[in-house]
Design a protein around this nucleic acid. Structure first.
Lengths: 119, 119
DNA sequence: TCAACACATGAACACTTGTTCATATGAAAG
DNA sequence: CTTTCATATGAACAAGTGTTCATGTGTTGA
């Protein structure tokens, strides 16, 4: 009973060259986490809806809430998250806060997703 | 004290034209949910790592686990989720199950994300 | 200066999600 | 067949997430 790593298969040696090459090519861990965090923003239907709306037009918070039929509070919480992720930005206009996409990448990311979903 | 919808701002009428136009352009709810579910797949760092690996080369389960330093069980659970989402597929090869990307969209979606993360 | 309105925020809660641990399945080699 | 090895899976648990409810903040207009 020698000590052994209980996770490995017996001989990854068979594919050791491939494994090593891939290991070298993998991005930094930090990059992977950032990337996952980015996609997390698109992984909730409320945020997805908000982003879709803002792809069409900038809009104040109450209009977003009414248009989507979601409570103002829920929208506001999600807007905060999207702002922290720097995907949207906002400015005050009279009594209203007008939100808009802060980043053009949002469009291309969602478009790629749509391509897949729409087959 | 008349009944009123507590969620609306007083006069979305100001922007009623825009709101109505956007409402017409929004995709079906089903599509939005599908889209969010798709992006959810990319929103976990373990799955992100697996997909990155498979972007470089098809690979058996144990090699993925060893390469990433993640338990075989955890990998297997995530592989199941990715298969259900039809993002990866697999075939048996001797004792091993070899996994590979099932969909070229995976590459373009991740690439768009990378563009954003890498500024 | 005060009331009304648009929006933000904290706490609480239910729900979801990912991991571990233990064990099951199932092909393959002896 | 029986054992071994690669993978799958179920249960349990901890941690994360999104919504609601109640209330706070700051701006506007009377």
């Amino acid at each position: 009973m020698e000590e052994k790593n209980e996770l490995l298969c017996d001989e990854p040696a068979a594919h050791l060259d491939v494994v090593d090459r891939v290991r070298d090519v993998l991005p930094e861990d930090d990059t992977l986490y950032e990337l996952a965090d980015l996609f997390k923003m698109f992984g909730d239907s409320t945020r997805m809806k908000i982003l879709f709306v803002l792809m069409e037009s900038e809009m104040c918070v109450c209009d977003i809430a009414e248009l989507l039929g979601i409570s103002q509070s829920a929208i506001s919480h999600q807007l905060r998250i999207l702002k922290q992720a720097k995907l949207i930005s906002s400015r005050r206009e009279g009594k209203n806060i007008v939100c808009f996409l802060a980043d053009d990448h949002v469009r291309s990311i969602i478009d790629q997703g749509l391509n897949h979903v729409l087959e």
